[in-house]
């Protein structure tokens, strides 16, 4: 009997503490009121981690392109990820052939003669958000975001 009572007591204590845990999560704490201004300048990801030889070749080409061409020929790509990053991610997510098709479609949309980019949502820097996930032919991975939204990259 006493044992049973103890069990119930422990159960009650456990339930009540777990109920409060969740509440504690919602209670706000002292915030870190940083004075600094967020840095929106693009930082290239030059990380040299690769899984196979193909990865090494691909990243070497991309990084060389970024370093010697893309970073010095001005901001010509209205999209994020940029055209070269889009190509890399597309190939990573699908395969080389499909990645190329995705890239040439992106290239065409980049050249849009009417500059008709207003149906894309934007990121903070004002570039249009256009991730490869939407272009893999899998209807399920398409994430439609209205153009009025600002996307956090």
């Amino acid at each position: 009997m006493i044992k049973n009572n103890l069990k119930i007591l422990f159960l009650i204590i456990f339930i009540s503490t777990s109920a409060f845990c969740q509440l504690e999560d919602l209670k706000w704490k002292k915030a870190d009121l940083s004075y600094e201004i967020p840095n929106n300048f693009r930082q290239r990801d030059y990380s040299f981690e690769f899984n196979n030889a193909g990865d090494l070749v691909k990243k070497s080409i991309a990084y060389t392109y970024w370093f010697f061409i893309s970073d010095v020929d001005g901001d010509n790509c209205p999209f994020r990820p940029s055209c070269s990053a889009f190509l890399m991610q597309s190939v990573e997510e699908t395969n080389i052939a499909q990645g190329m098709l995705m890239f040439f479609d992106r290239f065409t949309r980049d050249m849009n003669i009417y500059k008709g980019h207003n149906h894309y949502p934007r990121v903070k820097t004002g570039h249009y958000f256009d991730p490869p996930d939407n272009y893999t032919l899998d209807q399920e991975t398409i994430k439609y975001i209205p153009s009025t939204h600002i996307v956090k990259e």
Binding site: F41, D71, V72, D73, G74, D75, N76
Partner: peptide, 12 residues
């Protein structure tokens, strides 16, 4: 292209 890119970079 590279000339204007150069101007953009200087400012950036």
């Amino acid at each position: 292209r590279f000339y204007t890119g150069n101007l953009q970079n200087a400012e950036k």
